[in-house]
């Protein structure tokens, strides 16, 4: 079982996600990440992540391609493009030295402080999933009280 990423181009109409997810549910595959965006063309782009063996991944690509609103299903090789997740984190109320230490840690890791007016720090992190996970772990679960994380977004390096 390997991690798989599908990039799906489809009509931007209600119900497409339901058509997709039921095809996974039925075959007992858990979706690890779902991201949807609208392309400049007006079509929707869905990025899905899941785990499956080669046979099932190939089969699911064909099953999804068969759905009427779906135009194309590309199997993504993460090496050929950039995969990112974005996380917003909230810390407990911090004061004094502790506050500044955390700010420094976040900024050194490439994070951005979004708000700290209430005493707690709200910060924005991005990177591949592991990087984001590492920052959160480095800060510690004692400090970080809430995490809101996006699904994977992907863009290919290919031109044209």
């Amino acid at each position: 079982m390997k991690n798989r990423i599908f990039s799906i181009l489809c009509q931007n109409i209600p119900g497409v996600m339901m058509r997709i997810t039921r095809d996974f549910t039925r075959r007992q595959i858990n979706l690890d990440s779902i991201t949807v965006g609208v392309e400049p063309s007006g079509l929707a782009r869905i990025i899905l992540m899941f785990r499956a063996d080669d046979h099932m991944a190939e089969f699911m690509q064909k099953v999804l391609t068969r759905l009427e609103p779906i135009i194309k299903v590309d199997v993504i090789d993460p090496e050929e493009g950039v995969v990112r997740v974005v996380a917003l984190i909230k810390t407990k109320k911090l004061a004094g030295d502790e506050h500044w230490k955390v700010v420094e840690k976040i900024e050194r890791a490439g994070g951005k402080i979004v708000d700290s007016s209430g005493g707690a720090i709200l910060a924005e992190l991005s990177g591949d999933n592991e990087e984001v996970e590492n920052i959160i772990n480095a800060l510690g679960r004692e400090i970080v009280t809430e995490v809101a994380r996006s699904g994977r977004v992907y863009i290919s390096k290919k031109i044209g």
Partner: peptide, 8 residues
Amino acid sequence: IDPVEIGK
């Protein structure tokens, strides 16, 4: 005609 059936 349906690629889903092939190798299923």
